[in-house]
Design a protein around this nucleic acid. Structure first.
Length: 465
DNA sequence: GGAACTCGCCAC
DNA sequence: AAACGTGGCGAGTTCC
């Protein structure tokens, strides 16, 4: 498939965008190389220790024997053969090419305690060899200069490499801490990140004009994930501040709402919701299973709660999620669903789709592609427009502060403390006021969240402004 | 000895 | 009827 700008504005967005991003690349990000080296050494020692312990297990010795002494503990292929051919364990999960999977989830379900060390080794090696090592390899005088590409991604998002600045760990506490505490602003400066909130959902509303979706986006006190959690977990009341409800809300958001928006279906959602997020098994449910929740002021297990509501097995839960899905697309977001089908018809007729930002996607695409690409692309174009504006103001006003990076819906700045309030003010005006004014098809409010680290603080230390 | 592949895993 | 979108990159492996 091919991508191209159809309007002068679209061309200008890319032309000015790549110039602004090239200035961010030139600015770069400061790395504390001494810290990087120290962390690499610590990781190397930890890995060696874990490998020693792993080599003493019966599991390893059996593996070694079966491979005639030529074991490579980094080889998932070898591990797959050993587990599923030699030990003849039945694989729970199969890869794309049909062999037994050895990913984190597959190995955990095997319940072999020896494999825990192997998974830990994998994780530590990922941190050392992918992240810290790329900083060492790419740094010049203590700064890395990640490349930001506008021409590689099918959806009109960006990509980054050398090093990739867009996949530095953010979820796993240990990985995040090790990788982010070596990233610093220039001496005496402040790292600042500005993140568009729910920009993809907002952009989808610009295409589908769904009444209910717009209602959620226009009313900050409403909460679609909480409403869906209430429906999925059959709750009469939902206090968002309560701890177990927070978990149910996140499970709903990441296990149902977003996957459904991306084009997933109830079958996958049910597995993820029940097993991954709530700790419920795939078969029949019995008392005392899954996470604990609070119902009517009392702590109960999720399985007991569902059983009391007549959902007594994973199969029944899947049926329930199917009904929730039908309601989701058939009633709640019916206008969104109609847009998806209309949009698909337009593509089938013309062979291309045109984005609100003046770009065209042309060629062979699936139904999910057709309904996802415009949303992802347009969301990134909002960020790119903001980057161009801020970069221009920055140069006109001769800021000492600099834009240093971008992660699809967020911008990262290296800010002089004296300029900090002004930079925050400009970011808010550009993203939340001037952007919607310029692109009048934006039919919902836009929000940014600002997070900053203390002066001379690492990226690990950022907190809400 | 390098290209192309698979697998796994990090981000949005 | 079928069923999750986009990347980068490291390590191992296979092919030529």
């Amino acid at each position: 498939m091919t991508l191209h700008p159809k309007t002068k504005e679209a061309y200008q967005l890319f032309h000015n965008g790549i110039l602004a991003l090239s200035r961010a690349e030139r600015a770069g990000i400061r790395i504390d190389m001494e810290k990087v080296e120290r962390e690499q050494q610590i990781l190397t020692r930890k890995i060696a220790k874990l490998e020693d312990r792993f080599r003493q297990t019966k599991f390893y010795r059996h593996w070694e024997h079966s491979m005639n002494g030529k074991v490579n503990i980094n080889s998932n292929h070898q591990l797959s053969i050993f587990l599923y051919k030699i030990k003849k364990i039945k694989p729970e999960k199969i890869t794309e090419s049909g062999q037994g999977s050895t990913d984190d989830e597959a190995l955990r379900t095997l319940n072999l305690p020896e494999l825990d060390d192997l998974l830990e080794i994998r994780k530590l090696k990922k941190i050392r060899d992918t992240y810290l090592n790329s900083f060492t390899r790419e740094q010049v005088d203590g700064y890395v200069h990640p490349v930001f590409n506008l021409h590689l991604v099918k959806t009109y998002r960006s990509s980054s490499d050398s090093p990739n600045f867009q996949n530095i760990p953010a979820k796993d506490e240990e990985a995040m801490s090790i990788c982010r505490k070596v990233l610093f602003p220039r001496p005496g400066h402040i790292l600042l990140e500005a993140d568009f909130k729910s920009i993809e959902v907002a952009m989808s509303a610009c295409y589908n004009h769904d009444t209910q979706l717009i209602h959620y986006l226009k009313n900050p006190s409403s909460d679609m994930h909480a409403d869906m959690a209430k429906q999925i977990f059959l709750l009469d009341t939902f206090d968002k501040s309560e701890k177990s409800n927070k978990l149910l809300r996140i499970a709903t958001k990441n296990g149902f709402v977003f996957p459904e928006f991306y084009g997933d279906y109830f079958g996958n959602c049910a597995i993820n919701m029940a097993c991954r997020w709530c700790g419920l098994p795939q078969g029949t449910w019995t008392t005392g299973q899954g996470v604990e929740i609070v119902q009517g002021g009392k702590q109960v297990y999720l399985s007991d709660h569902f059983i009391s509501k007549g959902i007594k097995s994973f199969a029944a839960f899947t049926k329930h999620i199917e009904k929730v899905e039908n309601d989701f697309w058939g009633r709640r977001f019916a206008e969104y669903a109609e847009w998806k089908n209309r949009w698909w018809s337009v593509y089938q007729k013309h062979g291309y789709i045109d984005l609100l930002t003046g770009f065209r996607c042309q060629g062979v695409m699936s139904y999910n592609d057709i309904t996802n690409y415009p949303i992802q692309g347009t969301a990134f174009h909002c960020l790119l427009w903001s980057i161009i504006e801020i970069d221009q103001i920055m140069r006109q006003e001769q800021w000492d502060s600099k834009l240093i990076g971008q992660i699809h819906d967020s911008m990262i700045f290296d800010v002089h403390p004296d300029e900090f309030p002004h930079v925050c003010d400009i970011i808010r005006k550009v993203t939340c006021e001037w952007l919607p004014k310029t692109w009048s098809w934006i039919n919902v409010p836009l929000y940014v969240e600002l997070e900053a680290a203390p002066v001379d603080g690492s990226w690990m230390e950022k907190e809400k402004v």
